[in-house]
Design a protein around this nucleic acid. Sequence first.
DNA 1: CTTAGGG
DNA 2: CCCTAAG
Length: 710
Amino acid sequence: METVVAVEYGERNKLENSSATVITCSDYSKQIADPVVYKLARVVGEGIYIPATDDDMKAEDSIDHRSSLHFVLDNSETAVCSSNYDTFGQEFMPIDCELEGLFSGVFHYYFLMAPLFVAIFWFLLLLCYLSFIALLGFINVIALFLHFLTLCIPASRLSFLLSFKMLSRVALPIYASMSILVASTLLVHLNEKNITELLKFEEPSTQGERSDAAGDTIVDLGILNPKFEEVTWSDFDGQLDQSGFTKQSDPLLGHAESEPSTSTVCASWKPDFSTLKGDIYLDNLSVRELHATFKATFGRETSVKDKQWLKRRISMGLSNSCDVSATTFIIENNKLQKKDNVEDCNSEDKNHDKDYVTGLEGRNVSGDNILSVGHSQTIQMEGHFSGCSKTVDSATPKHHIAFDDDTQGNKRIRKPTRRYIEEVSESDYQEYSGRLVSSVKSSGNGQRTRVRPVHNIQPIRKPLVTRQDSLGGSGIEIPYVSRIRRGRPRGNIMSLMILQPCGMRMAARLVKKTHDGNDPQSDDEIENQEHKAATATGWLQHPLIKESERNQQYSEQSADLNNNSDDGHMDSYADIDSDDNILTVPTAKGGIRRKHHRPWTLSEVAKLVEGVSRYGAGRWSEIKRIAFATCSHRTSVDLKDKWRNLLRASFAQLPAEKGVQNCKKHSSIPIPAPILLRVRALAETHSQVSPDLKAVKFRSNMNYMKSGYL
DNA sequence: CTTAGGG
DNA sequence: CCCTAAG
């Protein structure tokens, strides 16, 4: 494992007039000519960087060879590398070309040459932030209003408002956290006037594409000696004959902050890792501590106050840095851990760890540059990313110039790129939404899937609590749920929960039946209307008043029965219905409610009664086709069952009550007495009733007639 | 497929 | 509401 590689500049030759350095890391093992180009820009004056030009490229041949490199190969010793980079150290700046969404030389060049674009980007970003905040605020105001509304009005009366209450409960924390995050990042960005910093945050979208195509690997190369050279990783079959690239811990930071100290590359670079003993939990550190850590890591101060950024930088720097190369620490979720704590660390490494660290410190003090050349990376991700990391890893074997023990687990670890995260989460989102849609659309297995999407998504999603949103690039953490629910009407969670299963089932039934649709409206819409009306209106009229009217409607337009004025008075019963719905929803949440139970609304009952009165009991298919044309979730069997129940109820109840009210004991829907009476009447006319009840029924029926409903 | 009935 | 048998 510990391999000491004596690095030599093989084909590099003398270079006296060094200009810029271009390190090209091309994957030859991959046929794709997609080399990752590392460029060194020349620093002209103060803070102005000029990418390596072609002329500079030519100078590649002439490379000063007086330098030697120190390579730290994992736990092994360091190879000697002495170079007189000091003279050049301040002249060149490496441009970080990490694939973590940073720019390539091309973009860098382009944007540096056109600051106008930068300004535009910045402006757009600001605009996005503002609109985002405004939108969130608006949503929250609504949620707040509804919340207080529910507080003022007795919930028992307007139980449907409970949904809004829940909504507000959900929306408030989400909004609070999001707004805080957005505001903080906004402030940070306002403080960070640096153009390159902005670029760094905005470019990943464009740059990431190429980067990911290259295999989504970070090749953290730094430049130890800022000399001019081109390193082509052509033969990377484990041989390390190529050289000249080393690590500078944080090249990007160097030019991003334009600090004078950063321009001194390696000479003045004295990280003090003595402060980094033990486990470092970046998440727990305050900004000040992060600054300290930053200084310890990079040997210089920083003015950045963005915690996320600092953490990222530090972790990146540490992982990239030779001092805390992958052999000693692993970085996981912004948590820097000694590898001893990690299982996958092989025993041999463990043995070396301590000595290694102490040795490192000593060397650092001595001022030597210790370099890590390991290029194997592992993308260590949390939770569901683990599966993908394998693929990425295997897809980039070429970068696996690991030394022997690298293959055993001493891999450099880094977080996935932003774009990667976004892609994965996006695909996940699509997958889930697709699942939802498909389950809605699916006709065959509607029974199995109709409930699941609503209730199961969140539990599934739970493990992945937050995701990093690319907005602003500074790591806004957004609950994953919000993304899932994106584009979905937040207004009516209740109806969503209730109607979703129904919609699916209805769709299933609809397809099954292959009705020639006489209803242009989708079932969901109809159901929505129905429930809205049900929840919005109270029971004002007696249903039977319109009986004759409805009969006419049956004859005229039976198909459109539900869409017209029929609904108006039909659903006038529906406060009870809505009440029931509300009561059943919590049970649905808890899963107590029966599997596919859908309570019968009074309008449905009335329709059923009407249908029976017209077509007679037993002709369920007929009734279903005509009276329940729009209620595709009720099958003829359902109608039959319901009728049976109604019959039972009517004959069980009528002797006890005197046409007063809904006194049904344990039924979810108290059925008004008039309906029961009518059921009985119909049953009698169809001779479904034992003759001994006829008299009673008839009398009560007369009573009902007299009581003034007519 | 529809209906009737039991669970 | 589900399942099944009978027509």
